[in-house]
Simulated scan of single mutants.
Amino acid sequence: MSADSLELHRATCPDDVDPRLRQALIDCWVDVTNAGGAAGFPFPPIDAQQAAPALDAIIANLAPETCRLILAMEDGELAGWLNTRRDTFALIAHWGTLHHVQTHPRVRARGIGIALMERARQVARDEMRLEHLHLAARGGVGLERFYGRLGWKEIGRWPDALRLAPGDDRDEILMVLQPL
């Protein structure tokens, strides 16, 4: 990947997601999940009929202050994406949560995930005025090391909280990025 070929965009309202982008997001989610990615669907294989309603719910909730997509585009094609959300309840409105962090399998290990995470941090701080971010990661796949290299700290675990298959229970790892 060259720095010139990667573009990072935001979708802040449902109208920002046209049918072509919607399909690319669905396809990415399906491909990431079916390649073993921990992006919200624990039981692969999945198909577009399963991913579409989950994506449509995210798109319907897009709003500049509370819910955004960060999109990584390489040479005009979707390379990865994530969802940043915040709750407006006064006690917790100062922090947000990252969901569905994913890089398409065809472009892994090229810095796209790092670029997405760095942009999410910048958008959360400068545009959404958040003070810190949270995320939950699936244990057993090295995600805590990836996020740790980017400044995230593990703040707890729910042991064996995720049952992927009989005999395959994984910790859910709670992480925070603070300050932004």
Rank of each mutant, 00 (worst) to 15 (best):
E77K: 14
T97D: 15
R138V: 11
G142N: 07
A52W: 11
G167F: 06
F43A: 12
R110T: 15
M128V: 08
L82V: 03
D126F: 12
V32S: 04
V176D: 00
E118R: 15
A90R: 09
G167S: 05
L69M: 10
Y147R: 02
H100L: 14
D56N: 13
M1Q: 06
A137M: 06
D87E: 11
T97N: 12
R119D: 12
C28N: 10
D87C: 11
D18N: 08
V17H: 00
D31Q: 08
R149M: 12
V176T: 06
L162V: 13
C13K: 15
T97H: 11
K153R: 15
W95K: 13
A35G: 03
A165I: 06
P179D: 01
A39L: 03
R22G: 01
L164R: 03
E127V: 04
D169Q: 14
L116P: 02
Q50C: 12
C67M: 09
L130K: 06
L55M: 10
W95V: 08
R163Q: 13
R22Q: 05
A24R: 02
E77D: 13
G76P: 05
E144G: 05
V123I: 09
H132D: 15
S5A: 14
E118P: 05
S5P: 03
G40V: 03
R121K: 10
L82S: 03
S5D: 11
V32Y: 00
A48C: 07
P42L: 12
S2C: 06
V107G: 13
L130Q: 04
P44N: 08
R125D: 14
A35N: 01
G167D: 06
F146H: 04
R110L: 12
D171T: 04
H99E: 14
I26N: 01
V176E: 02
G37E: 00
M117S: 08
L71Y: 04
R20H: 09
L133N: 02
A120N: 08
Q122V: 15
A48G: 08
A161N: 05
G36L: 04
N83S: 13
A57D: 15
G40S: 02
V123T: 09
A90N: 11
A39G: 03
L164W: 04
E131K: 13
R157P: 04
A137S: 12
A115I: 05
Q178H: 13
W95S: 10
T84A: 12
H9T: 10
R106S: 14
L21C: 01
D56E: 15
G80F: 02
A161V: 06
W29H: 04
F41R: 06
L130Y: 04
R10T: 12
P166W: 08
H134A: 10
W81N: 10
P42N: 13
A79K: 00
V32D: 00
